[in-house]
């Protein structure tokens, strides 16, 4: 496997390295804030150490990116396909407008994870967050699945304020039995049964626990709630047409 120390490398040169590897496994060591790694690429097999910069894997269209550490802001912006495993935490705006592929975060996600993620046909994006998520999780969610496990948390809530505000499709699963603070009245919340747990979220959680060496049973343990849009509460009544 090819390994390169990229600490002092410019982002343009890193991009060239990745293109050269052409899908062969490539490890980029000691990343130091270089942005756009794997941006728009189709066929990557990357392992990163250090701290990769913003917009990691933006528009990613296939392949796998693994980060052994934290990632910064705007990870997987508008991601289309492929997989991303972050064995640490992610910054703000994770998976913005993501349309396909899967993201697994071992630690926490910052503010605005999964904003306006959307699904079309068979293309169903998924984000699994092992720790907690910041405010505005899944805001404007238009499709896909977000799962937050809240592992190893103490007093802090599993998500911040305004969870799922304005979502109109898709689902947010939280491993808790507490209603997120200030949940919008336009959303529905319910506890899921074992059947849904098994058929819908178990495969993703299994993949998560395997990747990050977490105990699967522990990850599945306890109550999960799901947040969905309330179909009865649309925004139509807000408008008065001027004839």
């Amino acid at each position: 496997m090819l390994e390169v120390d990229v600490k002092n490398m410019r982002q343009e040169d890193i991009a060239a390295l990745i293109r050269e590897a052409d899908g062969e496994p490539l490890t980029l060591k000691s990343c130091m804030g270089q942005r756009y790694i794997g941006c728009g690429m189709k066929n990557v097999n990357l392992t990163l150490t250090g701290t990769p910069g913003n917009a990691l894997g933006a528009y990613l269209d296939g392949g796998t990116i693994r980060v052994k550490g934290n990632a910064q802001d705007a990870v997987a912006d508008t991601m289309n396909n492929g997989k991303m495993y972050i064995d640490g935490s992610a910054g703000d705006a994770l998976g913005y407008a993501m349309r396909g592929g899967k993201i697994f975060i071992h630690g926490n996600a910052g503010y605005r994870a999964g904003v306006h993620m959307k699904a079309y046909g068979d293309i169903q994006p998924v984000i699994v967050i092992g720790g907690t998520a910041g405010s505005f999780l899944g805001e404007y969610l238009a499709g896909g699945t977000i799962i937050v496990l809240g592992l190893n948390r103490e007093k802090e809530p599993i998500t911040g304020f305004f969870c799922g505000n304005g979502m109109y499709s898709g689902r947010i699963y939280l491993r808790t039995d507490e209603k997120p603070v200030g949940l919008s009245e336009k959303l529905l919340m319910r506890k899921i049964d074992d059947e849904e747990k098994k058929s819908v979220i178990a495969p993703y959680i299994e993949e998560f626990s395997k990747e990050f060496r977490e105990d699967y049973k522990k990850c599945m343990d306890g109550t999960f709630i799901v947040i969905e849009p309330n179909p009865k509460n649309s925004y139509k009544e807000l408008y008065a047409a001027v004839s």
Partner: peptide, 20 residues
């Protein structure tokens, strides 16, 4: 950005994102 901290102190005791 985190990288701006890591570049001067790669090994940290704790790193976190303060809430808004």
């Amino acid at each position: 950005e985190e990288a701006a901290i890591r570049v001067i102190e790669p090994e940290l005791d704790r790193i976190w994102a303060p809430r808004g």
